[in-house]
Simulated assay, not measured.
Amino acid sequence: MQQPSPEPTPIILAVDDLRALPRATRLARTSREGVQLLEEHRGMFIDELWLDHDLGGDDSIMPVVTLLEEAAFHGYPFQIGIVYVHSANPIGAETVVRSLSHWKYHVRRAVAQ
């Protein structure tokens, strides 16, 4: 009798400068690392993407958002099940939600822990 194949591990990516986010399979701490992380997963299905707006100092999530927008604009959006925006910055979080929703990404606002 053949054993059923194990379920594949979900890909859960996160970009956050402070939070641990223990469910994340990969974690980036800066926007630059976030862009690299997404580029490494281009063409793969990403189950969840967690985004924090403020990433310390002058850094923000906007370079990551721009990458996602440009991919969608060119007709090759990243394949993401759901994007969670969990920033403590309500205006920044709303900007991210509005921008990504415009490009048909499935986005939800989550409470920052």
Rank of each mutant, 00 (worst) to 15 (best):
I91W: 08
H74M: 09
L51G: 02
I46K: 05
Q36K: 02
T66G: 05
P4D: 06
Q2P: 12
T9D: 12
E7W: 03
A93D: 12
Y105R: 11
T95A: 15
T30G: 04
F78G: 08
L51H: 02
A24S: 06
D54Q: 13
L67P: 10
D16P: 09
E39I: 00
R29Q: 06
S99H: 10
L21S: 00
R98H: 14
A28G: 04
A93Q: 14
G34L: 01
R98Y: 06
H74C: 11
V65K: 13
V35G: 04
M44W: 02
L13T: 04
Q3F: 08
D16N: 06
R109Y: 04
L18K: 09
A112E: 14
V97M: 09
V96I: 15
I82Y: 03
P10T: 03
I80A: 06
M44E: 13
M44H: 11
R42G: 00
L49N: 02
T95E: 14
P63V: 14
S5E: 10
N89W: 09
S60E: 08
G75D: 13
F45Q: 02
E40L: 10
P6M: 07
L49S: 03
L38N: 06
H86K: 08
A88S: 15
M44A: 09
H106F: 04
G56H: 07
E69R: 15
G81N: 13
L49K: 03
M62H: 11
H53P: 01
S101E: 13
R98K: 13
A112I: 03
V97K: 14
R29P: 01
I82G: 01
W103V: 12
P10R: 09
V85S: 13
D47V: 01
L18I: 01
G34Y: 02
A93W: 08
L27T: 00
G56D: 05
D54F: 07
Q2K: 08
F78D: 03
R108Y: 04
S99V: 04
L51Y: 05
M1T: 07
I12N: 01
E48N: 06
G57I: 14
Y76Q: 15
I46H: 02
D16K: 04
I82D: 07
L67K: 11
P63S: 12
W103Y: 15
R109C: 07
Y105S: 12
L18W: 05
V15A: 10
H86A: 14
P4W: 03
A24M: 04
V111Y: 14
D17A: 06
L37D: 05
N89A: 14
E94K: 11
G56W: 02
A93T: 03
T95W: 07
P90H: 09
T66C: 05
R32L: 08
G92T: 08
E33V: 00
V107C: 10
I80H: 09
S87L: 08
R29I: 00
L55S: 05
L51P: 06
A93H: 07
S87K: 02
R108N: 11
H106D: 12
V35M: 03
D59W: 08
L38F: 00
P22K: 09
N89L: 06
V64Y: 10
E69H: 05
E94M: 11
R108H: 12
